[in-house]
């Protein structure tokens, strides 16, 4: 059972929003006492996902939450866009697959950096990606 300790919304519509957003994530991670390596992994994962949100989703909203699973605290980030959606999620999760000009490391790489990763996408409706990084995860 995951309980939410605190919650904050962040609207992302342009590239200039990315650095302040990353700082907010760092702030939240520092607040729960997350170590530097896990902080770096979390912020890097956030950076990948926020790029997808802007590039493919045309911007959207990110919810930054401090959560507790009964054993330890963590940071949960929910990235929601109302973009075109992903037709084949399992293909998008493959290393090296990209519809754009990128290396295709974004989604599978991001998954390796966090403890929990969930992606829900409906074509024409949008995509929601949820990640959790536990304090000592």
């Amino acid at each position: 059972m995951t309980t939410i300790l605190s919650k904050e919304d962040f609207i992302i519509v342009k590239e200039q929003d990315v650095v302040p957003f990353r700082n907010k994530v760092k702030e939240a991670a520092v607040k729960i006492g997350m170590g530097i390596l896990n902080q770096t992994k979390l912020i890097t994962a956030a950076s990948e996902l926020v790029r997808n949100l802007l590039k493919y989703g045309g911007g959207g909203m990110v919810i930054i939450e401090s959560v507790n699973n009964g054993r330890e605290n963590g940071i949960r980030l929910i990235f929601a866009d109302k973009g075109p959606g992903i037709a084949d999620v399992s293909l998008a999760m493959k290393d090296g697959y990209s519809t754009g000009k990128s290396l295709g490391l974004g989604l599978p790489g991001t998954k390796r950096l966090v403890n929990e990763f969930d992606i829900q996408s409906t074509v024409g409706m949008g995509t929601t990606v949820t990640i959790i990084k536990w304090k000592n995860g």
């Binding site: 530097i36 390596l37 902080q39 770096t40 992994k41 890097t44 990948e48 290393d95 290396l103 490391l105 599978p108 790489g109 991001t110 390796r112 950096l113």
Partner: peptide, 14 residues
Amino acid sequence: MQPAVAMTLVELGL
């Protein structure tokens, strides 16, 4: 390069 950045890059696959 900071150690945490290096470790993260490798895990990311870069």
